[in-house]
């Protein structure tokens, strides 16, 4: 008796660049979907390999020789250089959000990948979180009618790494953290016309607390409020949303919808913060995100988020930062000559 065996496709060979906070989440997710991982970082690659797996290599050039695609998880200012280098080497590129430090850099990244004929996607992973995905599916299906008013909040401990505290490097809480909700607001309610922002904080550096509030006027007529907070160390990561439409409302609060709560009684320190990453209660968002993107890299359908979406979110964030500076609403710059994906 002969058995017909379909050969398994060769594993996707992924080269990760960077070994910071998000690298562990990406690496675990890549490994869980069967990818073969090499990683390079100016610091911490060996430790990452020891704790999560994959093979650490000594140079970026060596990494490019080993892989089909690159996953860029470096600090924001270096995204563009690695995108351009990856594209020049003919690799598809997955890049952690924000796609680039500025909209100018994001356009250059998109143009470099287009010229090289490689795919480019930004890591707007909130689109893959089960609660957000479920909400968006119903919004898109018209379950709550036409979107009128959206509210999003995102709160977590202030990041540890020094570069986050340098607004010039990270773009601050709006570009680095709130951009998730700015992207999601646009996914639900469409492009944004004007942006107004305020920000307040106290203290400096890692002990500083900062909150940004942004209000969006969408072309559709919907209005959105997003609040992003880097709170004191030990603060639990928490997100909320409420979407109100002509036919109903959808809402979620990660502090209320927990599959398991353990009360350890006296002496149990239940106040341990979850830092930069939220607890995950649904299907693993990073696994879902990376498997969808891996399928696209291997010739499948495009994922739910495009490089142009990444640029659009940066344009909204940049308008918000300008609004902070001038104290007035700011029109979002047009996405311009970058061809928007169909």
């Amino acid at each position: 008796m002969t058995v017909q065996v379909t050969p398994a496709p060769p594993p996707l060979r992924v080269g990760m660049i960077g070994a910071g906070g998000i690298a562990g989440a990406h690496l675990s997710a890549w490994l869980s979907i069967g990818a073969e991982i090499s990683h390079f970082s100016t610091a911490g690659a060996q430790a990452l390999a020891a704790s999560h797996g994959g093979v650490a290599v000594d140079s970026f050039a060596e990494l490019l020789d080993l892989v089909d695609v690159v996953d860029i998880v470096t600090p924001t200012p270096s995204h563009l250089g690695y995108v351009q280098a990856g594209a020049a080497a003919g690799k598809h590129v997955f890049c952690e959000k924000p796609l680039a430090r500025t909209s100018t850099d994001a356009r250059l990244a998109i143009e470099a990948c287009r010229a090289a004929g490689v795919q480019l996607y930004p890591g707007h992973v909130v689109r893959y979180f089960s609660e957000y995905e479920s909400m968006h599916r119903e919004v898109a299906a018209g379950t709550i009618g036409t979107v009128a008013v959206q509210r999003f909040t995102r709160t977590g401990s202030r990041p540890d790494m020094d570069w986050f505290h340098d607004e010039e490097a990270s773009g601050g809480v709006i570009l680095d953290q709130m951009i998730h909700d700015l992207d999601f607001a646009c996914w639900n309610a469409g492009p944004v016309g004007t942006v107004f922002a305020r920000q307040a904080g106290t203290g400096t550096g890692k002990d500083g607390v900062v909150s940004a509030h942004v209000i969006l006027q969408h072309h559709s007529g919907a209005i959105t409020h997003a609040a992003g907070t880097w709170a004191r160390p030990g603060t639990a990561f928490r997100t909320t949303f409420e979407i109100a439409g002509t036919g109903g409302i959808l809402r979620h609060d990660s502090a209320e919808h927990k599959p398991l709560v353990i009360d350890g009684g006296a002496g149990h320190d239940g106040r341990a913060g979850t830092g930069l990453l939220p607890e995950v209660s649904g299907v693993g968002p990073f696994e879902l995100e990376l498997s969808e993107i891996a399928r696209a890299f291997m010739g499948g359908d495009p994922p739910r988020v495009s490089a142009e979406d990444g640029l659009a979110a940066i344009l909204v964030a940049e308008a918000a930062v300008t609004s902070l500076q001038i104290g007035q609403p700011v029109a979002v710059a047009p996405i311009g000559n970058v061809e928007v994906a169909a």
Binding site: T146, V147, A148, I215, G221, A222, G245, G327
Partner: peptide
């Protein structure tokens, strides 16, 4: 000290 506001009539137009 300062106020900015948006409104709409999407609901119950």
């Amino acid at each position: 000290r300062s106020v900015y506001a948006l409104s709409n009539t999407v609901l119950h137009g």
